[in-house]
């Protein structure tokens, strides 16, 4: 325990003693982690945004004009019996018309001159989460269309397929980019630490000459590496947070972008922990691998 206290003390002493070189190391670690966490944040936001879009998918079932109210409630019952259906709401011809009028106030005059209401009654279906895949929606739509009294089914066919492909592409692209950035981060951090160790190889050599064990030399360097990673992560996340604040303020005031149902969010807590852990672990591994060569038996 006393040994441990000594090692911690020594690590802090070294951080102070090699202040400039440590500052540079922490700066580089910060930059690497900033890139990594920015990527994380953009990806998470984009994914959440796209998922929200998907949640808005609904299937519209247009009913033939000849249906009596009894027919319609029969159709409703039939559709409700499908496991895919989460929520079903009926929009009568009259509702459809007034909805249309509200949406296109310029056309109101023209509509008032009409004898008959040209808009069909429809059923809006919200799907259960697990049936929102493009193939599944397609199958479901086909089944619904076969119900007598249903004239047409619409679900944004082309859009949903494009979306599914895009999401698939984005996931693999994000994975690839994420892995590359992570590897680059580890590479940069361990090389930076290697450089700082090079500046201290005399110290390591002399410690060995006066009888220090490898363990004794290593531990303070490991602690130092972990502290560098921790500090690097801290600064990176601070910068990210303030940039996020600035950006979301700007978005909020901007008239070009209005994401009505979506608010950009900061990295959730467990991701902050993850970034910090990446910093600390790469700091440790960086020290570990770069020390190896200076501690070889001569």
């Amino acid at each position: 325990m006393k040994r441990f206290y000594y090692f911690i003390n020594k690590a802090f002493q070294n951080l102070r003693h090699f202040f400039l070189i440590n500052l540079i190391t922490v700066g580089i670690i910060s930059l690497s982690l900033l890139v990594l966490s920015t990527f994380f944040m953009v990806f998470l936001n984009l994914q959440t945004y796209l998922n929200k879009l998907r949640d808005q998918i609904q299937v519209s079932v247009y009913l033939a004009d000849g249906n009596t109210p009894e027919d319609i409630s029969l159709i409703q019952k039939k559709i409700n019996s499908f496991p895919q259906v989460k929520k079903l709401s009926l929009i009568t011809k009259e509702e459809a018309l007034s909805f249309f009028k509200d949406s296109f106030p310029g056309q109101r005059k023209a509509l008032e001159n009409l004898k008959d209401n040209p808009l069909p009654a429809s059923l809006d279906i919200q799907l259960q989460d697990e049936y929102r895949g493009s193939e599944k929606v397609k199958i479901f739509a086909r089944q619904i269309k076969n119900i007598p009294g249903v004239e047409d089914v619409e679900y944004g066919q082309t859009w949903i397929e494009g979306y599914a492909n895009f999401l698939k592409f984005m996931r693999s692209a994000a994975l690839a980019v994420g892995v590359v950035i992570l590897l680059a981060t580890i590479f940069i951090i361990s090389n930076t630490i290697k450089l700082t160790l090079f500046a201290r190889k005399d110290e390591i050599e002399i410690m060995k000459l006066v009888g220090a064990t490898n363990f004794f030399i290593r531990v303070p360097f490991f602690i130092e590496g972990i502290l560098q990673g921790l500090l690097g992560a801290f600064f990176a996340l601070m910068v990210l947070f303030f940039s996020y604040q600035l950006f979301s303020n700007w978005i909020g005031q901007s008239s070009y972008f209005s994401l009505k149902f979506f608010k950009i969010f900061f990295l959730p807590f467990h991701h902050l922990l993850l970034i910090t852990a990446v910093g600390m672990i790469t700091g440790l591994l960086g020290s570990f691998f770069s020390l190896g060569r200076y501690l070889k038996y001569e």
Partner: peptide, 11 residues
Amino acid sequence: KSTLPLLRRKM
């Protein structure tokens, strides 16, 4: 190898 440091402490 690990005994070298111990030996050096006596030198």
